[in-house]
Design a protein around this nucleic acid. Structure first.
Lengths: 134, 134
DNA sequence: CAGAATCCCATTCGATACTG
DNA sequence: CAGTATCGAATGGGATTCTG
């Protein structure tokens, strides 16, 4: 995911796993984009077709839905089944690993809900004070 | 995504919270960037000064460290304490809410570690097959 | 030491149009 | 319906330089 512009080799964080960051960046590089988690969560509700996903996720473009589902497929989170009918019919469903990830994501979502107000307050306070900490 | 330093509200996608995605995007909009989680995790180990963070997080630039710590402060995850000495000395530490978030993040990191190999296999298979699902 | 300020490229993503 | 292809704008963030 995006590292260096120049030819300089990336190697963003030190060694393979120098500290104990290990894993955090990896998962965020996969679902840290704008749409992956939304697709994940929608598919956690059940099997969906392309159009169904598109309608269920307001604001997503066809392109991004295609790109996102394909990435999730590549990573083994989603399984794609195309029925050779006409018009075409394609179903997406979570793999067991995908469901597992969706569960972990849900935990983060719960955290977010629980602390939404507190974050809002913190921001309001910060912005009111102009970014200082007096 | 991080809108701006000013108090401009995000509101990226459609409605306020149509389905039950609620919360997922919000937290990822905060820590989904390249550096936030790394700072979070490093601070979870204890109080750190600016330079200490910089050295502990290979590849981060001064600018991004400044930007990232400030955002975390604004959101109430990190507390900044500047001692008026010379040379200046600034300490960063997690707030209780920041520690709570770090805990949730750690769960995701654990998931990632547990499934790293499986994801690698899935990718290898996908790439070998040229992106099809035969 | 701990930033602030510029510059500027690269990747991401949205909009649009076309296809099997 | 389920994509693919192309283009352009916005954003993220690295390198560098300057300051209190």
């Amino acid at each position: 995911m995006s590292v260096a512009h120049t030819g300089v080799t990336p190697q963003v964080h030190g060694g393979p796993c120098g500290d104990d960051d290990c894993g955090i960046r990896e998962v965020l590089d996969r679902i840290g984009d704008r749409w992956s988690v939304l697709v994940l969560v929608e598919l956690a509700k059940g099997v969906r077709r392309f159009r169904e996903l598109e309608r269920a996720i307001p604001g997503i473009s066809q392109r991004m839905l295609t790109v996102t589902t394909r990435r999730l497929c590549r990573d083994g989170m989603v399984e794609r089944t195309a029925h050779p009918t006409v018009p075409p019919q394609v179903e997406y469903r979570l793999t067991p690993m995908g469901e597992s990830l969706a569960g972990a994501v849900r935990a983060l979502a719960d955290w977010s809900r629980d602390h939404r107000d507190a974050v809002g307050e913190a921001r309001a306070k910060w912005d009111a004070e102009g970014g200082a900490t007096p």
